[in-house]
């Protein structure tokens, strides 16, 4: 098994740092899957069982790395799966924003390590400094790979563009203080509603004029409790009740410069939040619905 990669451009370096720091905020541990085409960061929940992972992030190697070599176990299994503590990686990358060059490789020291060699320019002289970080990793054996397969998800009922993440996050953070669960409701007319209900208060924030990317309606609400409060055609809306904290965590991804964020909803079951950047990085977050 061999892996070696070099990054020299400042743009991708900054972005890579932001991605890793976002992931470290979402989870203590993550799995880094290296393949010939892409790098994947995968975060699974501890007791997730068959449900999709919490986070799935794809980074195309060619836009980020100037050199990229990988040799897997054998011809059939070409990928490498590494388990690591995400904070270790994000802390090591903290200096990357000003660095000239980053080399990443897989090494065998006392234990398997992901070694980062960061070259930073000196402010006083022409010489550069080199910092080496060895991050202990666990090489995940082949028989466990199936746990980290690309998530197979049901066809979402609706996909809708999200408003500016920062704005959404302040709102969600206020709601987080009041209620642990939030109902996300999207309508085919481009409305997104966040609603919380507690003994003390009922708060709903509505965003309108959002782009609807896909709608697989009409939606069958026959089994749900009939809420006659809505004037709009409920066959054109779908909703899902989710954990407010998890939703808020994804929104901290606003520090990654992104093109679009899309929220897809499988009625009452699943919310998929997907963030896409200019460099074709795709960060997906899966939040399973809370059903009573």
């Amino acid at each position: 098994m061999k892996f070696r990669a070099v990054m020299v451009d400042t743009g991708p370096m900054r972005e890579f740092t932001n991605i890793v720091s976002t992931i470290s905020k979402l989870s203590k541990e993550c799995v880094l899957r290296l393949s010939t085409e892409k790098l994947y960061f995968i975060v699974s929940e501890d007791n997730s069982g068959p449900s999709p992972p919490m986070l799935w992030c794809e980074i195309p190697q060619d836009t980020f790395f100037s050199e990229y070599q990988i040799v897997g176990v054998d011809d059939e299994y070409r990928d490498i799966y590494l388990g690591l503590v995400s904070a270790n990686l994000s802390k090591s990358l903290a200096t990357l924003k000003t660095a000239k060059c980053l080399k990443m490789k897989l090494t065998k020291k006392q234990c398997p390590c992901l070694t980062l060699e960061i070259e930073t320019p000196s402010s006083t002289s022409q010489q550069t400094r080199q910092v080496t970080h060895d991050i202990p990793v666990i090489v995940i054996p082949r028989k466990l790979w199936s746990e980290f397969h690309e998530p197979r998800i049901p066809q979402p009922d609706m996909s809708i563009e999200l408003p500016a993440l920062k704005q959404l996050r302040t709102t969600i953070d206020r709601m987080k203080g009041m209620c642990p669960e939030v109902v996300i409701r999207a309508s085919a007319e481009g409305r997104l509603t966040l609603q919380i209900k507690t003994d003390m208060a009922k708060v709903s924030t509505r965003f309108k004029d959002l782009r609807v990317m896909a709608f697989e309606g009409p939606i069958d609400h026959s089994d749900s409790e009939t809420e006659t409060q809505t004037i709009e055609d409920i066959s054109k809306t779908c909703y899902c009740r989710v954990d407010t904290k998890k939703f808020s965590m994804f929104l901290s991804a606003d520090q990654i410069s992104h093109n679009a964020t899309v929220c897809s909803i499988v009625n009452k079951k699943l919310v998929i939040l997907c963030l896409q950047t200019e460099e074709n990085v795709k960060l997906q977050c899966f939040i399973t619905g809370i059903v009573y």
């Binding site: 408003p163 208060a201 709903s204 924030t205 509505r206």
Partner: peptide, 12 residues
């Protein structure tokens, strides 16, 4: 600064 967002609150 954003015209497309509104919040309703009902406080007991």
């Amino acid at each position: 600064s954003f015209s497309n967002v509104m919040t309703d609150c009902e406080i007991a």
